[in-house]
Amino acid sequence: MFSRILTVAGQEIRIGIRNRWILLATLILAVFSLALALLGSAPAGTLGVDRLTITVASLASLSVYLVPLIALLLAFDAICGEVEKGTLLMTFSCPISRTEFLIGKALGHTLVLTFALVIGYGLTAGLLVGMGAGSTAGLTDFARLIATSILLGVCFLALGYVLSSLTRQSGTAAAAAIAAWLVLVVLYDLALLGALVANPSGVFASSVFPYAVLLNPADAFRLFNLTALGASELVGGMAGVSETLPFDPRFALVSLIVFVAVALSASAVLIRRITP
């Protein structure tokens, strides 16, 4: 069982290397994080806060956009693309269960994502430390950012598998993946903030908004990271809300894990119904 899962994961990684997916994802993360670290740190330096921590705060916002996008791009094709090409006919005639196949894909993609995040963000951290701008506390923040970014990525990988097993064509799955990214990463946030601004002291702000943030992995990720940094005064906006939360912000982490479990189970059920 494990050997079959590892075989699928290994093949996914090998394909990621061959078609330069890993390289591209790593480069994108490295370039954007370096740009943020080098360009966006001048005013913050005057606040006397660790520069690594400041960078982590802005990278958290970057992760919210980039990591779901990379994860969805890795995952949207995973199942329907193989159905369309016809490779699943052979794979599913082998003694591998469909759940094993799915877990193998997820493991492979998670490792690809982990590699890209560790190297991409790690380069930035290394550069800042090399410039004498980092402290141990800042490095912990960095490690937390990378770990939670991976978790965020897995949320969207699992969502990608759900979309991929619901559609027959990879074109449709690509459209669905882009729509999911737009809704969860951009529109959801705008809608919440809009409602908050319209009525800052109503029932919505006090008892609906905090839970609505928990439901969306992108928002839960941001909430957790910004509160963990204690950086609300640096970033403002949503993080300012964290002091008034009716629950421990670490709960956001639980919400991410629950999301992964639900979405992976859903895709495990859906993949059983597929005719390759």
Binding site: I15, R18, G86, T87, S93
Partner: peptide, 15 residues
Amino acid sequence: GASYLPEAVAFPGAL
């Protein structure tokens, strides 16, 4: 115990 060759064979081209 069984194996199968589909009529339209396809493999991941990068391998």
